[in-house]
Design a protein around this nucleic acid. Structure first.
Lengths: 135, 135
DNA sequence: GCAATAACTAACAAAATTGTTAGTATTTAA
DNA sequence: TTAAATACTAACAATTTTGTTAGTTATTGC
């Protein structure tokens, strides 16, 4: 249970108020969340399919992550009508689908620098290199 | 200290191997990290400037977050030469600067849906709505 | 009727993250 | 010389997140 009287909670709320970026990061930063969103996007939209894709996850943990994603309206739980056995599927909302390209750009960014791209500090512009006429 | 023999650690490693997206999310998901990167980007590049911007953070916590960002090569710590008092500044690397537009798109995404944009599930295409000729 | 599958939940324990307290070293300004 | 500012660290405590154990309900296949 979240403790509302803690400094931890107050700091979180402060950041949420400073910028939506902080709540957005919060929504995607659970252990399995990015991967779950991506797998559902790919069509692995049932509980047992996600379990197959994520061998280390337990049922409890998967259910919890899904519930949190649902609480942020990134996905919804839907009953599959007339299915035998009557099942449940997880479907991304427009909000969830809009997240996918952002997750992809995070992926590209990670790959680029993990793949050996040189990391450096951008050197400051030498003012002496500028034409006097431009100043 | 990280416990290497835990299921928690094994699951994290598994996700890091599945996709760089998961390590990327991990790099930005500390409590203050996104905001710190953004403030440094804006020129608040000294320890005490960041403290001023983040009233709830303690020195210990700020130092820790900065060290973690440094360990992921998102920023570097630099001595300011010939400065009185001799100070230290934090500078984004090219990796850190490349992160900024991604953080901005997360921000936009958060704002859009926090701002009241309707959230829905994309309805499946009705096949009966298609012209027979198109099939 | 019995085991297997699908989709869960509650209560608890382990581990990780975040925050607190008390200290360090250096420089500057009064 | 004393206090204030800058930039930290180590050890510990509080809180949160993640994982475990042991259940539930409903249906299918044998």
């Amino acid at each position: 249970m979240r403790k509302m009287q803690s400094r931890n909670y107050a700091n979180e709320q402060f950041l949420f108020e400073v910028c939506e970026r902080n709540s957005a990061i919060n929504m995607i930063s659970g252990r399995w969340k990015g991967q779950i969103v991506y797998y559902i996007y790919q069509g692995n939209n049932r509980f047992h399919l996600l379990q197959k894709k994520l061998p280390g996850i337990s049922e409890t943990v998967l259910a919890r992550q899904l519930k949190e994603l649902e609480s942020h309206a990134i996905l919804v739980k839907m009953e599959i009508p007339d299915s035998i056995p009557a099942g449940i599927k997880y479907v991304l909302t427009n909000k969830g689908i809009d997240l996918v390209p952002i997750l992809e750009s995070l992926c590209d960014w990670g790959k680029l620098y993990a793949g050996g791209k040189e990391i450096f500090v951008c050197p400051p512009i030498e003012t002496s290199a500028l034409e006097p006429a431009q100043l």
